[in-house]
C-alpha cells in the first residue's frame, strides 16, 4: 500500500471515535425534541386519523424505545444507509448527495480565493510591518472582519444585481437556459461570483491578518539577518523566505476554518437561493425532518474531517520538518 493511502486510512480510523461521539451526541439532542417526525409530517400533509398515525409510527420505528432506534440507526449507518427523509420522502443519502457537490464547489472556490488573495495581501502588509501600506491593510481588514457574510451578500445583490444588473440575483444557474458546455460553465461561474465573495470575504481578511502577523514575527528570526548578510535581495527575502515560512500556520487554519465555512454556507446559500447542502440544513430544521438533520450533521462532520486530512497532507508537503517526522 502506498504510504499516502495507509496514512489516509489510519487517520480516518483515528477519527472514528470522534464520529461516534458526534453520532451519539446529535442523536441524544434530537431525541429531546418534543413531537416526532409523524407529528410534523401530519402538520404538513394534513389530516390523518390516530390509527394511520400509529401505523406510520410503527413503520418508522417510532413506537420503540430510543435505544432500539439508535441501534437500528447505527446498524443501517454501518451499511451506508442514512435513513428516510420525511420531508423529501426520499432516502436521506440521496438528498444529501444531490446537494453536497454544489456546496463543496462553493466552499472550494471560496477557500481558494480567500487563501490566495488573503495571503497575497498579507504578504504585501507583512513585507514591511509598520509601513503605511501595512497600517492601511490592517485597519481595512479589521473593519471587513466585522461584516457578516449574509449581510454582505445582500449588499452585493443590491449593488451588482439590482442596481448595475451585472450579475444574477441568485440560484446556481439560469433555469431552462438551454446552455451547455462552456456557455453553461460561464453561466454557473457568473452565479457563483457573489455567493463566493460573501462567503470568502471574512476568511480572506482572516488569512491576511494571520499572514501579516506571522511575517512580522519571522522578520525577527535570526535567519533573516543571515540572509541579509549574504546579500540576498529584499524581494527574495520577502517572498521566498519570510512569506514561505509564514504561510505554514495559515495553511493549518484552512482546516480549522472548514467547519466554520460550512456553517457560513447555510446562510449564504439561503441568501442566494442556492440549492446546496447548507440550505438543506436550514430546510431540515424548518421542516422538523429529524433523520435528514441527523444525516446533515454526520455528513458535515465527515466533510470537516476529510478537509482537515487534506490540509494535513498539504501541510506535510509544505513543511519538511513534519514530512521527516511522519
Amino acid at each position: 500500500m502506498p504510504p499516502i493511502v495507509s496514512f489516509f486510512l489510519r487517520r480516518l480510523l483515528g477519527a472514528l471515535p470522534v464520529l461516534v461521539v458526534v453520532l451519539v451526541g446529535s442523536f441524544l439532542l434530537l431525541e429531546a425534541a418534543s413531537g416526532d417526525a409523524v407529528d410534523s409530517y401530519v402538520a404538513r400533509s394534513g389530516a390523518m386519523d390516530a390509527e394511520q398515525m400509529a401505523q406510520l409510527r410503527q413503520d418508522w420505528g417510532l413506537d420503540k424505545g430510543p435505544l432500539y432506534r439508535f441501534r437500528a440507526y447505527a446498524t443501517a449507518l454501518a451499511e451506508g444507509d442514512l435513513g428516510w427523509s420525511t420531508s423529501f420522502e426520499r432516502p436521506v443519502a440521496s438528498v444529501i448527495f444531490e446537494r453536497l457537490p454544489i456546496t463543496l464547489l462553493l466552499m472550494g472556490v471560496a477557500t481558494a480565493l480567500a487563501f490566495s488573495l488573503g495571503s497575497f495581501l498579507g504578504i504585501l502588509a507583512g513585507a514591511s510591518p509598520g509601513s503605511f501600506r501595512d497600517r492601511f491593510l490592517s485597519i481595512a481588514s479589521l473593519a471587513i472582519y466585522a461584516v457578516p457574510g449574509f449581510w454582505l451578500g445582500l449588499v452585493l445583490i443590491v449593488i451588482f444585481a439590482v442596481d448595475l444588473r451585472w450579475l444574477p440575483v441568485g440560484g446556481i444557474e439560469t433555469i431552462a437556459s438551454g446552455k451547455s458546455g462552456l456557455a453553461r460553465l460561464g453561466d454557473i461561474a457568473a452565479h457563483l461570483i457573489l455567493p463566493v465573495a460573501s462567503l470568502a470575504m471574512v476568511y480572506l481578511v482572516l488569512y491576511l491578518r494571520l499572514m501579516r502577523d506571522r511575517m512580522s514575527e519571522i522578520w525577527r528570526d535570526p535567519f533573516v539577518s543571515a540572509l541579509e548578510a549574504r546579500g540576498i535581495s529584499r524581494s527574495r527575502i520577502v517572498w521566498r523566505h519570510v512569506a514561505r515560512n509564514a504561510v505554514l500556520p495559515v495553511v493549518t487554519m484552512l482546516g480549522l476554518q472548514a467547519a466554520a465555512m460550512l456553517g457560513g454556507s447555510v446562510v449564504v446559500e439561503s441568501v442566494f437561493a442556492i440549492p446546496g447542502f447548507g440550505r438543506l440544513a436550514a430546510e431540515a430544521v424548518a421542516r422538523r425532518d429529524t433523520p435528514l438533520l441527523l444525516g446533515v450533521i454526520l455528513c458535515s462532520a465527515v466533510t470537516v474531517i476529510i478537509a482537515n486530512l487534506l490540509v494535513d497532507l498539504a501541510y506535510g508537503k509544505l513543511d519538511p520538518r513534519v514530512r521527516a517526522g511522519r
Binding site: V21, G25, L30, L256, A259, V266, A284, I297
Partner: peptide, 22 residues
C-alpha cells in the same frame, strides 16, 4: 478531548440550528 474534538468537527452554526429545532 474526544468530546471537544467532536464539537469542533460539527459546524457551530449547525449545532445551534439543531439545538433551536429541539
Amino acid at each position: 478531548m474526544r468530546i471537544t474534538e467532536a464539537f469542533q468537527t460539527v459546524p457551530g452554526f449547525l449545532l445551534a440550528l439543531a439545538a433551536i429545532s429541539v
